[in-house]
């Protein structure tokens, strides 16, 4: 008769087992240690619209609303040099939060909003700003000639105001009506009406009346 013999108990010696266990624990902890250090990259210069801090903020996490802080913080002008305006019936004004000088609420239903931002100096120039606005609604940049063609000059008591009106392509069309004007104290004022193309079209006549009413304080 054949007998099956029980194999001798040959598990690892205690010390070996303990050191293996401790080693595994330390390895897991060591993996968790992450060193912070300054890193260096040499990269080709970026195109103005590509990956600018503004773009980085606006594009980053999926579904995040575009941050309004796409401009440097402006000094809040007061007294002589600041602009005044008159609001049409049904419109209301709120003091700006964060980087905005003021926000207008129109009585038109749907996504539309008007904002006022003021920046010191030429704020990068007209072409750069117009191209930045176009980028915000998914349009490509334009050159000086196209800029001049797109410009509508509105005469106000505060001086000439350059107004642009752009509508995006795609299924849900966005529209932006934006004006900019320099004041004698050297600041540049930006007044923008943005939103879905339909509501913006309805709010535009009133917004243009606000632009026409601009005057110096």
């Amino acid at each position: 008769m054949l007998k099956t013999s029980t194999p001798p108990h040959r598990s690892l010696p205690f010390l070996q087992k303990a050191s293996l266990l401790a080693g595994a624990g330390f390895l897991a902890l060591a993996v968790g240690c992450n060193r912070d250090q300054v890193s260096h990259f040499r990269v080709p210069k970026e195109a103005p619209t590509a990956g600018s801090p503004m773009a980085a903020m606006g594009e980053a996490p999926a579904g995040m609303p575009l941050a309004e802080g796409d401009m440097p913080a402006p000094p809040r002008p007061s007294g002589q040099g600041s602009l005044k305006w008159s609001l049409p019936k049904g419109w209301s004004e709120a003091t700006g939060e964060g980087m905005r000088y003021a926000t207008f609420k129109s009585p038109v239903a749907g996504r539309n909003e008007a904002t006022v931002v003021v920046l010191p100096g030429p704020a990068g120039g007209e072409l750069a700003n117009v191209n930045r606005w176009r980028g915000q609604i998914g349009l490509g940049p334009i050159d000086e000639a196209a800029l001049a063609a797109a410009r509508v000059v509105v005469k106000t008591k505060a001086g000439a105001l350059n107004v642009y009106d752009f509508t995006s392509e795609g299924q849900t069309k966005s529209r932006m009506v934006a004006g900019l004007i320099s004041t004698p104290d050297g600041n540049t004022w930006f007044l923008k009406l943005t939103g879905d193309a339909g509501p913006v079209a309805k709010a535009k006549p009133d917004f243009m009346r606000i632009l026409e009413s601009l005057r110096l304080d």
Partner: peptide
């Protein structure tokens, strides 16, 4: 005019404060 030398200081390092040399 063609290249940017980018030195990135992570927020975790900034939160420790003090001086940080940019190598």
């Amino acid at each position: 005019p063609t290249w940017d030398e980018v030195y990135s200081v992570p927020d975790t390092l900034l939160s420790k404060g003090g001086t940080i040399a940019i190598p």
